[in-house]
Design a protein around this nucleic acid. Structure first.
Lengths: 87, 87, 87, 87
DNA sequence: CACTGGAAAATGCCGC
DNA sequence: GCGGCATTTTCCAGTG
């Protein structure tokens, strides 16, 4: 293999390893989440309802963020951007 | 609210918070992964190929695990469970 | 109802009926599969092992297909797409 | 391989082939369903809505079947089974 | 910005 | 009847 290919290969390998490492961490956390759901279920909570609650709360967050974003747009349009109050 | 409800409510709240905390961590890692892909792309690697490589490597792992699983099943079927070799 | 709506409605109805018809056929086959598993079980075969074998054979197929897919990707990446060899 | 094993092996093989054959048919139909959805989409129908309609209709069917089943139970309890009116 | 492909979630099924 | 597992469906990001 030529040197440039070798270097590119190492580079590629490095990217792959970084991604696979992160994927593993992600999986660990996903498993943790499952465990918490299982624990909640063991304590008598209905998993389905629990998931619903969490999804609703997430939607609410998104909505709040969108509304803040819109507000920021308005403020910017009025020359009153949040980061530059006295420009 | 009666005391038992209050306690259950606190319990529920606790589960929700734990899950939401973990979901946040998961999202952080997912974003990290995206960043790595973007960086690789910036270094001239084809994202599609990269993803394919990683997916195949993951499949290889699964395959190996499946084969181990079926070996265990065979052993069990033969009355030779892995933990109790000479029962 | 206006004519266009009526036409659209008939069209929609037609799609729905086609899908539901196919879903029924699919269910019939799924039931057939169950029957075969049951028959195998009645003949002394361990269903779990049977399912595992079939799942591994399916994975092998997928694996082969994936490897072909990545080969195609490599060839494309090298400007050697299968359909346009000397472009 | 002993004769009994050989026979069992053939038997097993036969079950596997029957199941795999049926799985293929099932997949073919599943693909057909996808095609119909795609065609509907190409005709301006919203796939998501379409799926919702079909799922609701399926639920309705299930409910109707349950109600009929309950009715049958009542009739049986009254000695008025549907298939054997004058037993 | 619509579409495809892949990840995540929900549902249903089987065995205990 | 329930828990675990497989399948299915839904959702979302990436791509062209």
């Amino acid at each position: 293999m030529s040197d440039v290919s070798a270097v590119a290969g190492d580079h590629l390998r490095s990217f792959i390893e970084r991604i696979e490492r992160l994927e593993e961490e992600k999986k660990t956390i996903a498993d943790d989440i499952k465990d918490v759901y299982a624990e909640a279920k063991g304590n008598g909570f209905d998993t389905k309802v629990l998931r619903k609650i969490i999804s609703i709360r997430k939607q609410d967050q998104n909505e709040r963020q969108e509304q803040e974003a819109i507000l920021d747009l308005y403020l910017q349009a009025l020359g009153m951007g949040p980061d530059m109050p006295d420009e």
